[in-house]
Simulated assay, not measured.
Amino acid sequence: MRTPHVIVVMGVAGTGKTTIGPLLAARLGVPYAEGDDFHPQANIAKMSAGIPLDDEDRWPWLDAIGAWAHERTGLGGVVSSSALKRSYRDRLRAAAPGVVFVHLAGDRELIENRMRQRQGHFMPTALLDSQFATLQPLQADEAGVAVDVSGTPEEITARAAAALEALDTPSAPTP
Rank of each mutant, 00 (worst) to 15 (best):
T134D: 00
L23W: 08
L62C: 04
I44A: 12
G76D: 06
S130R: 12
F132T: 11
A140R: 11
H103R: 14
A25E: 05
M47Y: 03
Y32P: 12
Q139R: 14
L135D: 09
D57R: 06
A95Q: 10
L128D: 07
V6N: 00
A105K: 08
I156Y: 03
E155Q: 14
A166G: 13
P170R: 13
H39Y: 03
F122L: 07
E109F: 09
G14Y: 00
V12N: 04
S48G: 15
A42M: 05
L128E: 06
R27I: 09
R116L: 14
I44K: 13
L75V: 10
V8N: 06
D141T: 09
I20T: 07
G21I: 02
Q41C: 05
V6F: 02
P97E: 02
A83G: 13
D148R: 12
D90F: 02
E112L: 14
S48H: 03
R114W: 00
W68P: 13
V102E: 02
A95Y: 02
A33D: 10
H121S: 05
I111C: 11
V30P: 15
L104K: 08
V8D: 04
W59K: 04
A96K: 07
H121G: 07
Q117G: 14
L135W: 05
A45K: 13
G16C: 07
A143W: 07
A94P: 08
K85M: 12
T174H: 13
D168H: 14
A140P: 14
A161E: 15
A42P: 09
A13I: 00
H121Y: 03
T174D: 15
P60E: 01
G144A: 07
L28A: 11
P97S: 05
S48I: 03
V78Y: 00
S87K: 10
V12S: 03
V147S: 03
G35Q: 01
L164G: 09
V79C: 10
L110G: 07
L128M: 06
L75D: 12
M1D: 08
P52V: 03
G21Q: 04
N43L: 05
H39D: 05
A146G: 15
G144W: 01
E109R: 14
T73H: 14
T152M: 08
D107V: 11
D37A: 13
A96N: 09
M115Y: 00
H70W: 08
R72I: 02
H70A: 15
H39S: 04
S82M: 04
A146Q: 15
G77W: 02
A160T: 10
T18C: 06
E154I: 09
A67D: 15
A161Q: 13
V145I: 11
F132K: 08
D57E: 07
P31I: 09
G151R: 03
E155M: 10
Y32D: 07
T134M: 07
W59D: 05
A146N: 07
S80I: 01
V100E: 01
V79D: 01
A146Y: 01
G35V: 01
A126F: 00
K46C: 02
A83K: 00
V12Q: 02
H5P: 08
K85F: 01
A83N: 10
S130L: 03
R2V: 13
D90K: 11
V78H: 00
D90V: 08
L62K: 00
G14M: 00
A67G: 10
D148P: 12
P22H: 08
F132N: 13
G120K: 02
D90S: 11
P137Q: 10
G151Q: 01
G16I: 04
W68A: 06
Q119T: 12
L23I: 05
